[in-house]
Write a protein that binds this DNA or RNA. Structure first.
Lengths: 207, 207
DNA sequence: GTCATCATGTAAGCCGTTACATGATTGC
DNA sequence: GCAATCATGTAACGGCTTACATGATGAC
């Protein structure tokens, strides 16, 4: 789940761990409000598996401004990994590899891996998918939700107290609204299925 | 979280693990759709901590019907823990202890432990709380949700693609509806605060 | 000079899962 | 006899969290 989100972000350009965390929150909101204790090991794993690679300096970002020659020697010795752009602490910039992009797409559309938790994240990344996969994702999720409705009969206990009943009803309402939302998405997907191209987006790599 | 749910159910009468799992689903729906691999260790922990105790047979259930004297000897030898009521496999029936009831109430109202995940479960069990604690629980949750709205500005990125934007909007809608729901609950809680007594419910122990 | 922010990482723990192992009883 | 359901438990693993350790840099 985290891997998917990280790869999705890295697809928009090389970034380092600290920045990735901020963007996770900005892009995915509550879906991926994840701690550093998860992110750094995840990046290390992804690097070990060849899905991402560390970048040896991002030249267009490191304009090497005349920040100062003071204590230059000391700084140069310490800057092991990367000469920090604009004097920051050394940071490890990652980029997604072709292999990584492949496994990203494979995992994004893998029907065996879509649980309730990862659905919203997957849908957020749906622009990377083929229209058919996108539709399949939505319909699998819809079926799951309908299954919940029938599995657990709506507020089956009329002997629940008011609080428990209120919670049950609220949850049932939520499921219903999720289904309605999906129906709208599916409908939209079907109507302009021809006009919607996969993945074409103003990828602002030079932002 | 699971402990809370188990204690809440056991407060309505002694039950065994297998039954508890079914009731978890029935009472709390998706909130506590938990596997046996969690339940049995949880019950063992609760027993070790003194919150629950095993019952030495529930006489009113084990009516000892004339099921048969056939193979009676063999069955009697194997029935180690409990003489099974109506010939079932031996099962371990738990009841909540006074200590358990105390820690249940303490944990239910503990303000340091209410994260988003456990809120719905706590509210489902709100009939066990004092009106003031109940109100406090709701208002803490409301504050959390409002905090989310401001922390993560609503669909802050107008450069998100349609899918990501749709997800962000849907989540924002959900948060808004949760707040509206809480407002209704809080309002109801304040108006009939005097008339609502804590915990009085037709506890059907003899069902 | 010290505090907030940027930046990376490790270790321990929590809370659940799946898979496995075992076995009794009921119904076809 | 065989499968489904009832019933309890263990072991391994997953994915995240918090807390800890370290350190640079800029602002006040």
């Amino acid at each position: 789940m985290l891997d998917l989100a990280l790869l999705g972000l890295l697809d928009e350009g090389p970034q380092h761990g600290y920045e990735l965390r901020k963007r996770l929150r900005a892009h995915f909101g509550l879906l991926a409000n994840v701690s550093f204790g998860s992110i750094y090991p995840a990046l290390a794993r992804l690097e070990a598996s060849g899905a991402v690679a560390t970048v040896e300096e991002t030249p267009q970002l490191a304009v090497a401004p005349p920040t100062g020659s003071l204590s230059g020697e000391r700084a140069a010795i310490r800057a092991r990994r990367l000469v920090a752009s604009r004097g920051r602490r050394s940071r490890k910039v990652y980029r997604i590899t072709p292999t990584g992009r492949q496994s990203f797409l494979a995992r994004l559309t893998d029907p065996t891996a879509d649980d309730a938790r990862s659905f919203s994240l997957r849908l957020s990344l749906a622009r990377h998918m083929e229209p058919a996969d996108r539709l399949a994702l939505m319909e699998r999720r819809r079926a799951q939700l309908v299954g919940q409705q029938t599995d657990i009969p709506p507020t089956d206990d009329d002997q629940l107290d008011r609080y428990a009943r209120s919670v049950a009803e609220h949850i049932a309402d939520g499921v219903e609204q999720d289904i309605a939302w999906l129906d709208r998405l599916i409908e939209a997907e079907r109507t302009n299925g021809a006009s919607a191209e996969p993945d074409r987006r103003k990828t602002r790599r030079s932002a």
